[in-house]
Design a protein around this nucleic acid. Sequence first.
DNA 1: GAGCCGATATTCT
DNA 2: GAATATCGGCTCC
Length: 185
Amino acid sequence: MTPEEIRELLAGDAPDVAPRLLGMRLRSEIGGVVTEVVLTEVEAYTEDDPASHAFRGPTGRNRAMFGRAGLLYVYRSYGVHWCANVVTGAEGSGQAVLLRGGKVVEGRAEVIRRRGRTDHLADGPGKLCQALGITEEHDGTDLLGGGPIQLLPGSPPDTYLATPRVGISRATEVRWRFVAVAGEG
DNA sequence: GAGCCGATATTCT
DNA sequence: GAATATCGGCTCC
């Protein structure tokens, strides 16, 4: 799968794109140090979704969500953690897929150093960002343009679950959280 | 393992 | 002033 093919895939709607991100790899190269995870848990957020940051239109924080498919949207959660999303859909539509968790496959020693522990390295959105060193400086960067944060093809899981999303109070009935079950890499 | 709680930027009421 | 797309440390099983 080429970067062009991934971009084409990401131009679809977030709920369709999200499960296809499972098994793909997210790689970061910061200061010459490479760390990489395989994505195992994601959530879709769309333009007409009351739980989405884009629901009330563009703001200073969410402007990256309205860019072209394949951009990275980074926001601060609870004033403490960073969370990363892949922008999907047509430019200006305000969709994204939240990257909720992954499995470290490269640069494990560096991830342990960044996280300050040896377990639960990237099993949550804030942890995944800390593991890869993703911060506000990467907000709006292109994941398919050879930048420091890259989305690469991988092996899709054998199966995945679709469940309600986590940590939200509106539109809780849609099952737009996708979790890899087996063969995640 | 489950439940409580503090940290705190951005947005909304 | 309140809520939020969280996490880690603590307590009590």
